[in-house]
Amino acid sequence: MKPYPLQFQPEMKERVWGGRALERFGLTLPEGHIGEGWMIGDHPNGTTKVVNGELAGLGLDEIRETYGKTFFGSKGFSEKNGRFPLLIKLLDCQDDLSVQVHPNDHYDKLPPGELGKTEMWYVLDAKPGAKIIYGLNPDVTRETMAQAIAENRIMDCLNEVPVQAGDSFYIPAGTVHALCSGVLVAEIQQNSDTTYRIYDYDRPGLDGKPRELHIEDSLNVIAYKGAGATRMTTELSQSGEWLTLAQSPYFVTEKGLVQGDWSLSTSADSFVIHVVCEGSGSIRWADGELAAAAGQCFLIPASLGSYSLHGDMTVLRSYLP
């Protein structure tokens, strides 16, 4: 079978902080407060299925098992669990997320087969005055953090930053963080669903009961001296060039401006994932063409070779280092 760009049916997740904003991308949402669209996923808690071409109806896990390194590349698997190594999401935050932190791959209390979670956010939209929690204030230690949690004044320890569309945030495992209300985000992350909540504003979950907190695990995995988190404002003035937003051991994410036709190519090492942030156009390759619009995500097989992005759009490109 000839390789071709894959598009998937998203897995929608209801969250207490979610809303309906993902509908702006033409996505069909189930009822409820939809906070997460898992756009490309191969995880026990959500596996997306192909909607286009010869492989339509197959899950990403089935493609992995059948086509292996041909599609995903020589680096295209998690060494720990053999699964697709990344999870691609769109997040609609109509309320504040819990203050949280993620472990790295080496934390000894991870569930069997689960990875740590290093991630990055690209802000697609932000209401005036929107902010996020991003790291700790200077000189916060495990002891001062534990005391602040016990005294219900954790916000004294947290660094709040304003956000606007186009901002990018790299969030290595160990970074305390929280998206706040009024932001719409594309998230590139390790293929993990492990989150340790530190604080959740004393609110009930979807079931009316308080959501579980994970204080001891959080205190164990926080990088108090800093995990290497970086942020940037990403203005592009020229098309056909990639701006690096995040470079981690697990993925590289870049931003590019498409104006006209941009010729690209895959390598045998890694698949490529494109997230369309703004505008519209198409993906063209030797055997076909696929329309592309804001909010859509595509997996380009490592074996595809030459292809091009065409149109007028802003895109993210992610691949394995």
Score class of each variant (00 low, 15 high):
247 Q>M: 09
7 Q>F: 00
25 F>G: 02
124 L>W: 11
8 F>H: 02
175 T>V: 01
43 H>G: 13
122 Y>H: 15
27 L>I: 07
261 D>H: 15
90 L>V: 04
289 E>I: 14
33 H>F: 09
184 L>H: 08
76 G>Q: 10
161 V>W: 06
44 P>F: 04
93 C>N: 08
109 K>A: 14
55 L>C: 00
46 G>C: 06
52 N>E: 10
321 P>D: 05
5 P>R: 03
237 S>G: 15
147 Q>Y: 07
209 K>Y: 07
263 S>P: 14
238 Q>G: 11
307 Y>Q: 12
288 G>W: 08
115 L>R: 14
242 W>Y: 09
298 F>D: 07
242 W>H: 08
208 G>D: 02
159 N>M: 10
292 A>I: 05
270 S>D: 13
165 A>H: 13
283 I>S: 06
86 L>E: 01
176 V>R: 09
133 I>T: 08
129 G>R: 03
178 A>C: 07
133 I>G: 01
199 Y>D: 09
24 R>S: 07
185 V>I: 14
297 C>M: 06
7 Q>C: 02
308 S>Y: 06
128 P>K: 02
15 R>W: 03
28 T>Q: 10
249 P>M: 13
69 K>T: 10
135 G>I: 00
103 P>A: 12
317 R>L: 08
144 T>V: 10
298 F>N: 06
281 G>R: 07
286 A>K: 15
156 D>I: 06
198 I>T: 07
216 E>W: 13
282 S>I: 05
260 G>A: 07
24 R>L: 05
178 A>R: 00
248 S>N: 09
147 Q>D: 14
204 P>T: 11
28 T>R: 13
80 K>R: 12
19 G>F: 10
31 E>D: 09
277 C>P: 06
98 S>M: 04
160 E>W: 03
105 D>S: 10
229 A>D: 12
32 G>Y: 10
198 I>Y: 02
310 H>T: 15
260 G>L: 07
50 V>E: 03
65 E>G: 12
274 H>Y: 15
8 F>T: 01
31 E>K: 15
54 E>R: 10
8 F>E: 03
47 T>E: 08
27 L>S: 05
283 I>C: 05
207 D>E: 06
134 Y>D: 01
157 C>Q: 09
101 V>C: 14
119 E>T: 07
136 L>K: 05
194 T>K: 12
138 P>N: 01
275 V>I: 15
61 D>H: 15
115 L>H: 15
189 Q>A: 11
138 P>W: 04
119 E>D: 06
7 Q>Y: 01
308 S>G: 10
250 Y>L: 04
276 V>P: 05
237 S>M: 11
138 P>R: 01
204 P>V: 09
308 S>F: 04
40 I>Q: 09
247 Q>E: 12
136 L>H: 04
235 E>A: 13
279 G>D: 15
112 P>Q: 08
291 A>C: 00
106 H>S: 14
154 I>S: 03
221 V>N: 11
38 W>V: 01
166 G>T: 11
296 Q>T: 09
261 D>P: 08
37 G>V: 02
17 W>G: 08
29 L>D: 00
14 E>V: 00
289 E>V: 14
198 I>G: 08
244 T>I: 14
77 F>A: 15
114 E>V: 07
164 Q>G: 11
202 D>T: 11
246 A>S: 13
179 L>S: 09
294 A>T: 11
77 F>Q: 14
54 E>T: 12
90 L>P: 00
